[in-house]
Amino acid sequence: MSQQDDAEREFDLRWADGAEHKEPSARARMLAARWKENPPEPVPFRGDPRPVAPRRSSWVSTTIVLGIVAAVILLLGYARFQAPY
């Protein structure tokens, strides 16, 4: 693509973006026509029908992680102790 084509395209994009009236998309027109006859029912904002399980305490998670790390350290130390030199 030459520089002249880029300049013409740039001009066309600026001209299109500067339009005062922009036509809605086909989907927007379809939904507007459908909702004019049969409007949608209201939906709660971020409504979730399922109950949410309570989260664990951060102390429980920290204890689990530290326990696993300690177990791995002990396991590696035991394996090294049992390995022949």
Results as ranks from 00 to 15, higher is better:
P42Q: 10
P42L: 02
P42N: 07
P42R: 06
V43C: 09
V43S: 06
P44K: 07
P44E: 09
P44N: 03
F45G: 07
R46N: 08
R46M: 13
R46C: 13
G47T: 09
D48H: 13
D48C: 14
P49I: 11
P49C: 05
P49V: 09
R50Q: 13
R50E: 15
R50Y: 14
R50V: 14
V52F: 04
A53M: 14
P54I: 00
R55L: 14
R55M: 13
R56M: 14
R56N: 11
R56K: 15
S57F: 05
S58K: 15
S58F: 10
S58P: 10
S58Y: 06
W59G: 15
W59R: 15
S61P: 00
T62C: 05
T62W: 11
T63C: 10
T63N: 06
T63Q: 05
I64W: 04
I64M: 07
V65F: 02
V65W: 01
L66W: 08
L66N: 05
G67N: 05
G67K: 02
G67E: 01
I68K: 03
I68H: 03
I68M: 12
V69M: 08
V69R: 05
A70S: 13
A70K: 03
A71E: 09
V72T: 12
V72K: 01
V72N: 01
V72M: 08
I73W: 02
I73G: 02
L74F: 04
L74Q: 03
L74V: 11
L74T: 08
L75N: 08
L76F: 03
G77R: 01
G77A: 02
G77V: 02
G77P: 00
Y78A: 08
A79N: 05
R80F: 07
F81P: 00
F81A: 05
F81C: 01
